[in-house]
Amino acid sequence: MTLLTVEGLSKRFGGVVACDQVALEVRPGELHAVIGPNGAGKTTLLNLLSGELLSDEGRIALDGREIGALDAPARAALGIGRSFQITSVFGEFTAHENVALAVQARAGHSFRFFAEARRERALADGARDMLERMGLGERANTPAAALSHGEQRQLEIAMALAARPRLLLLDEPTAGMGPSESARMVEFLASLKGTIAMLLVEHDMDAVFALADRITVMTYGRVIATGSPDAIRANDEVRAAYLGTDS
């Protein structure tokens, strides 16, 4: 049984084929990494999966349900969460408010006009738990814009998780992080493994090979290989196209 099935997915921007007949599967609880050089179409793929972009061709199914025509909010409601490559938080809200808003996204409708949102126990407690898990408990009342870059990356993940997704799309979660922050992020993602399916786009090969159950390699919009980390390491085509000299 697969959680996410992608077949023949294509997206063109003018003459450029950003994704070309991409096929991949994500199994429940699996951490599936997508790697490839810059411009390989990895972020486009995430945008197609999250619904921010609609594909030109191909199908996307979540748990057997076709979701290719749904917009981003509808897909999020079905359980696809994501983090962004460039940190995307609500700068003027506190860290706690950021996460509480993410909890609110999955806690019924928001056409409630009078009751103070911050007094809703379920939202406040859910947000606090998630911040503590992320190690941001002490920064709860700091405006997101005043957090360090690494903390903002953590907040980004906390928000994506707070909406309780079944599939989490992670776009370079360690981008711009220092070595120690990066190691903590990898450790955290490792601790999530098995509880939630993740599709990870990442440039840090150490992180990818430490975390991934399976790896898909893309170049020029195409998938050239999918397999276990060991199989990918041993794949000649991958070595030629991407891993190059350092492996």
Binding site: A76, Q104, M159
Partner: peptide, 18 residues
């Protein structure tokens, strides 16, 4: 909060499911 979230970062709001 949803309205203010839209002002701050609508793309993020949609990704969260609003």
């Amino acid at each position: 909060m949803v309205l203010r979230g839209c002002k701050s970062n609508e793309r993020r709001m949609r990704a969260l499911g609003f």
